[in-house]
Design a protein around this nucleic acid. Sequence first.
DNA 1: GTAGTGATGCACT
DNA 2: GTGCATCACTACT
Length: 199
Amino acid sequence: MKLSAAFYRRPDVVTIARELLGKHLFTRIDGVLTGGRIVETEAYAHINDQACHSHLGRFTKRTKIMYEAGGVAYVYLIYGRYALFNIITNEAGKADAVLIRGLEPTEGVDEMLLRRGLMVASAKLTAGPGLLTQALGISTAHYGTDVTGDLIWLEDRGEQIPDEQVLASPRVGIDYAGADAALPWRFRVLGSKWTSPAK
DNA sequence: GTAGTGATGCACT
DNA sequence: GTGCATCACTACT
């Protein structure tokens, strides 16, 4: 079952990030279906969280889309090379987001290998947020794409990840956020080799 | 361990 | 308008 806009428009972004584990993310880019099971996410909240691009009402061209109602993609370029894929949550004007960091490939693995320039499927295929976007064909061109549409969407396949298989830990690479960097808003499925390699 | 990449945002004219 | 510091990362040694 495809996740509806109502799923994303709930107020608690941390809960949404937790619930996205075990859901499936699909893209149909250039007519090719690719996708997999989400095994790692991070929550970013617009209030009380300096790590979030939209914190304290920062409203710029880049973060504009975060102020839309939940259910659209926020894709942005980092370090000049890599696209990172976020899903906007909460209602319009409340700029929360969930970053998708880890994906276990299930559909269109051959196409993903092609996009990544690899010969065999390994953890390298989607090991890291910048690589899974490459594998799925997501780029900054998909900034603002509706994630309940036919280009990029998420599905609930009835799988629940039990709490004892979920690891909550501090987020990655956001030391600049000071004390907020310690918030345990990164969620991973324990034991998956498809979670990102970063500390 | 370190190099590399370029859009972005802000300070300054 | 120009300049430049910053960055939620990956590839390579």
